[in-house]
Amino acid sequence: MIALFMLMIGCGTAGDSSFHEGLSAIRSGDATVALAGFQQSLAEGGRDGAVYHGLGNALYRLGHHGEAAAAWRRGLALSPRNGDIAANLDFVRKRFKDKLEPPSTHRSAFFWQSFLSPLEGAILAATAIAFGLWMAVWGRLRVLRGLNGLGANAVLLAVASVVIGCVLALAALDTVAQRAGGVVTVAEVEVRSALGPSGLSLFVLHEGAEVRIEDQSQTHILLSLSDGRKGWVNGSALRTTNPAHPFVFTER
């Protein structure tokens, strides 16, 4: 049954045809058509690392480097072991004016966050917890049939499996929370001490600056930098790096 669930996660496709249209277009050098194809693939539910990789490439070819960085950040969040996306992100970071330290990919306690995507972590967590629970079911059935329950080793294995699963689930959720970041997509934006124009200008960020999103209102975002600086910016100046969010790009 666990295998069946995993199969359900792994077999379905979404936005595949639009993705391949985008791929063909970018190979032929038409970045505009490719951009539309990749965006359509995302709209159809194809929130895949490869789609964000292609989207970032198309945006880069069109000269939108900040948007491209955001797309690659999203792709890397979904496929953390994809070296090509990491190389592209590293490549474009060198072109940005603000030399900020890239955000950390993992906490030291959850070292596997750097090479497991949240989905992969959650699948492992669900597998471990389900295994422990199915063992408990088996033990309960034995008791109801008047037989002895699970042995000490089996109980230990079941408990350990559930505990490990809970830790993995916690790490997966933490990864999502930790990657609540954003990339500046406009040429220059003032970071202010308060919402709106009443705040004082604290500092200026330029296209490609990678920030962490601390809080947000309907129109503004409270961001923090790796060096500890904080401030509010207009939400339209940032693109979030959460791959589950819509990626709607319109040429300005």
């Binding site: 539910g45 895949d48 292609g54 474009v92 997966a172």
Partner: peptide, 15 residues
């Protein structure tokens, strides 16, 4: 930049 290597199929890989 490095190009995309086409995967077997794309799907929703978000949590």
């Amino acid at each position: 930049i490095l190009p995309v290597i086409a995967p077997g199929g794309v799907r929703d890989r978000t949590l």
